[in-house]
Simulated assay, not measured.
Amino acid sequence: MTDQLPDRLCVDPDSPFHDPDLLQKEIGVLFNGTEKTNVEEYCISEGWIKVAAGKALDRKGKPLTLKLKGKVEVWIKDGEGE
């Protein structure tokens, strides 16, 4: 299900796992069998995703995140839906 996607990817530009060219594409994330649309970061090998915790922000103005553990699958959406 991975179409040349990295093991770990983050939307935060300050993260070493941020890839702006790859994030231009629409990436699908399946977590424990459910598609998630609010993923801030994922790691396939360690089996976790980070999602925003509501509208709460940290002291640097970035969203607070929750780390959820489970089975992670990712793919590049081709515009026609999966």
Results as ranks from 00 to 15, higher is better:
residue 37 T to G: 04
residue 81 G to T: 11
residue 16 P to K: 12
residue 78 D to V: 03
residue 25 K to Y: 13
residue 70 G to Q: 05
residue 77 K to I: 05
residue 38 N to S: 07
residue 77 K to W: 06
residue 52 A to Y: 04
residue 47 G to H: 15
residue 73 E to P: 07
residue 81 G to R: 14
residue 4 Q to N: 11
residue 64 L to D: 00
residue 36 K to C: 04
residue 37 T to H: 10
residue 10 C to F: 03
residue 8 R to N: 14
residue 32 N to L: 04
residue 48 W to G: 01
residue 71 K to V: 14
residue 79 G to N: 13
residue 39 V to P: 05
residue 36 K to M: 10
residue 11 V to T: 12
residue 30 L to S: 12
residue 37 T to W: 12
residue 66 L to Q: 12
residue 9 L to A: 05
residue 18 H to V: 06
residue 79 G to I: 12
residue 80 E to P: 01
residue 12 D to Q: 06
residue 6 P to H: 07
residue 21 D to W: 07
residue 52 A to S: 06
residue 7 D to P: 07
residue 80 E to Y: 03
residue 28 G to F: 02
residue 31 F to I: 06
residue 56 A to S: 12
residue 65 T to Q: 12
residue 66 L to F: 02
residue 20 P to G: 03
residue 68 L to N: 00
residue 46 E to I: 12
residue 77 K to S: 12
residue 36 K to A: 06
residue 41 E to V: 09
residue 62 K to Y: 14
residue 6 P to G: 05
residue 10 C to L: 02
residue 80 E to M: 03
residue 15 S to G: 02
residue 14 D to W: 01
residue 15 S to E: 03
residue 48 W to Y: 13
residue 9 L to V: 03
residue 10 C to D: 14
residue 12 D to K: 01
residue 72 V to G: 13
residue 72 V to R: 10
residue 76 I to T: 10
residue 68 L to S: 02
residue 2 T to N: 14
residue 51 V to P: 01
residue 13 P to V: 02
residue 19 D to A: 09
residue 41 E to M: 12
residue 12 D to W: 03
residue 17 F to T: 02
residue 25 K to N: 15
residue 53 A to V: 02
residue 75 W to P: 01
residue 12 D to R: 05
residue 60 K to A: 05
residue 71 K to I: 12
residue 13 P to W: 00
residue 80 E to N: 01
residue 70 G to Y: 02
residue 30 L to D: 07
residue 14 D to L: 09
residue 35 E to C: 00
residue 5 L to W: 09
residue 55 K to N: 15
residue 38 N to R: 03
residue 30 L to T: 07
residue 67 K to Q: 15
residue 4 Q to G: 01
residue 80 E to A: 07
residue 24 Q to L: 15
residue 31 F to Q: 00
residue 73 E to G: 03
residue 64 L to N: 04
residue 18 H to Y: 15
residue 61 G to I: 15
residue 38 N to W: 00
residue 35 E to S: 07
residue 78 D to G: 04
residue 1 M to G: 14
residue 41 E to F: 06
residue 58 D to P: 02
residue 20 P to S: 14
residue 69 K to L: 10
residue 74 V to A: 15
residue 29 V to A: 12
residue 81 G to M: 11
residue 39 V to S: 06
residue 49 I to A: 09
residue 52 A to L: 00
residue 55 K to A: 04
residue 49 I to Y: 09
residue 46 E to V: 09
residue 41 E to I: 04
residue 26 E to A: 14
residue 4 Q to W: 00
residue 52 A to E: 03
residue 54 G to N: 08
residue 19 D to Q: 14
residue 39 V to R: 04
residue 74 V to S: 09
residue 63 P to W: 02
